[in-house]
Simulated scan of single mutants.
Amino acid sequence: MSNQNQTEATVAPALDATSTILVVVASKSTSQSFKESDHSFTCPTNTIMTGRYHSGDENGQTMYEYATLKAVDSSGNTVPGTFTVGNSGWSAGQKESSSDFGAPVNQVITAREHKGDENGQTWYKTGQIYFNNRLCYIEAEPDDLSITVKESAGSWAKKDIPMIRRRHSGDENANTTYYFGKMVL
């Protein structure tokens, strides 16, 4: 085999308009633990939020799961390229005990900040995901992509796809529902 053929064998084939590219989690990490009543967490650059853990009341501990992304073809082979998360912004504050925040269309949650107890304010930061400067679309949250947990239970709500909505009503003894979205190129 000549050097030319060896080089050709190691170069990924060019993608045409009919190629299927899937966006999947490459690696996951967990944040440090924060006191819920006075914290702000922002995912590191070019990562997305995939989960949240909380135990106890407003003095309890909160952690987040975040992930990097990769693109794969329909055979599971990695497609070379770069993911970026951009065009981000913070939401207006919502009273935690009656909050229902959903990221704007084709955006995902990348940060959360909370001050106070269930009557305090919660803010979210969102962003758009790009692969090689191409926008990734986020499919809306069907019921099978949601998780409901008792807020104080000390349970993770996480999936291997981005968090796009969070709804909570009541104090720490009430339920919180998390919604996740599929990423599509």
Rank of each mutant, 00 (worst) to 15 (best):
M1W: 12
S2Y: 04
S2T: 14
N3Y: 13
Q4F: 09
N5E: 14
T7H: 09
E8C: 11
E8T: 11
V11A: 11
P13C: 05
L15W: 10
T18A: 12
S19C: 09
I21V: 15
I21Q: 04
L22D: 11
L22G: 04
V25D: 03
S29P: 03
S31D: 00
Q32D: 15
F34E: 10
F34Q: 07
D38Y: 11
D38P: 06
H39M: 13
F41R: 01
C43H: 08
N46T: 05
N46S: 09
T47K: 05
T50K: 03
G51Y: 05
R52M: 15
Y53M: 10
S55L: 14
G56C: 04
N59C: 04
G60F: 02
T62I: 07
M63E: 13
M63V: 08
Y66D: 02
A67F: 00
T68I: 01
K70M: 11
K70F: 03
K70N: 03
K70H: 10
A71M: 02
D73E: 03
S75E: 14
G76T: 01
T78G: 08
G81Y: 04
G81W: 07
V85E: 05
N87I: 09
N87V: 04
S88R: 08
G89M: 10
G89W: 07
A92N: 11
E96T: 12
S97C: 07
S98Q: 15
D100A: 15
G102Y: 06
G102W: 04
A103R: 01
A103L: 00
P104R: 04
N106M: 03
V108D: 01
T110G: 07
K115Y: 12
D117C: 08
D117Y: 00
E118D: 11
Q121A: 14
T122Y: 03
Y124H: 02
G127F: 06
G127R: 07
N132R: 08
N132L: 01
N133Y: 10
L135Q: 15
C136M: 13
Y137M: 10
Y137D: 11
E139C: 10
P142Q: 14
D143G: 14
D143N: 10
D143H: 07
T148I: 06
T148N: 06
T148K: 12
V149M: 01
E151Q: 13
E151A: 12
S152D: 13
S152W: 12
K158F: 10
K159M: 15
I161K: 03
H168Q: 09
N173S: 07
V184K: 15
L185N: 12
